[in-house]
């Protein structure tokens, strides 16, 4: 790992000012992605701006309509929160499936969403639940946030401060984990908002996306069997040593069917 200058601001505005004043800065949240990347020298920031000291970016707030999660909230905090378990159980369940316990104790939702790893879990919830990504300067719709492999709508220096999840009538998440890394080979979130269905997919493509074909059939008939009739084309899907694009397309349907079955039993 190359040396760097370290900063620990206590205000969002201070963090942004530090970012603007540095040569080649990066924000540091839980470090579970960034530190291994720096060790491999795939990232070599001149300045690390640690977000852990910014109080307003931590913590949770849940009402009947919306669950707000501060960007610096660790996966285990979400997974174990009685508030989240009661209001939006699917999010607590998803957070509890990320990586391993040690990673969940450090990794944060803001870092995960900003990173847009194609196999990450939280992006599936952002897209599947239609969440809003809040930064210091604007609110970005979940449908507009993920752009490509490790690419998001964030501008240089923009900080995710909070994520707002609307509370659906019911929802379910199914993940086919890579047995070694626990990242999603494919993960599917199905959410029912008073009869209107959203389907989010992670792991299959370069970034999380909505499966409009599956949404269409589920909006006509909410049943696992209805998914059988959908064609999921594998064009543009990830093909790597873990799974071919064709297999991932197959898994999208299987995970969607299982999520629908869970949702109907919830």
């Amino acid at each position: 790992m190359y040396p760097y200058n370290y900063h620990r601001p206590t205000q969002v505005a201070e963090a942004v000012a530090l970012f603007k004043a540095s040569d080649d800065p990066m924000y540091l949240s839980g470090g579970m992605t960034l530190i291994p990347t720096m060790k491999q020298r795939l990232a070599a920031p001149t300045d690390l701006i640690d977000l852990s000291g910014i109080e307003e970016m931590s913590g949770l707030n849940a009402t009947a309509e919306v669950v707000q999660v501060g960007a610096f909230t660790q996966h285990n905090v979400v997974a174990r929160s009685a508030q989240v378990q009661a209001t939006l159980p699917v999010l607590a369940q998803l957070a509890g499936l990320i990586g391993d316990n040690q990673v969940r104790n450090r990794g944060t939702i803001g870092g995960s969403v900003a990173n847009s790893d194609p196999a990450a879990d939280y992006p599936c919830a952002i897209v599947g639940l239609g969440a809003t990504v809040v930064t210091q300067q604007r609110s970005i719709s979940g449908d507009e946030f993920f752009k490509d492999l490790f690419e998001t709508a964030l501008e240089p220096g923009e900080i995710i401060t909070r994520i707002d999840f609307p509370v659906p009538t019911r929802a379910a998440y199914r993940k086919f984990p890579n047995p070694a890394s626990r990242y999603a080979v494919v993960g599917v979130m199905v959410a029912d908002f008073s009869g209107s269905i959203r389907v989010g997919v992670t792991g299959a493509g370069p970034c999380a996306f909505r499966a409009s074909g599956i949404e269409e059939v589920l909006n006509r008939e909410l049943s696992a069997d209805a998914v059988d009739g959908v064609e999921v084309p594998d064009a543009g899907f990830n093909s790597d040593l873990h799974a071919s694009g064709e297999y991932r397309a197959h898994l999208v349907k299987i995970m969607a069917k299982r999520a629908v079955a869970d949702l109907l039993h919830s």
Binding site: I35, L48, N101, Q102, V103, N105, R106
Partner: peptide, 8 residues
């Protein structure tokens, strides 16, 4: 529990 190789 945390991984101390991944804390600066």
């Amino acid at each position: 529990a945390v991984k101390s190789c991944t804390i600066l």
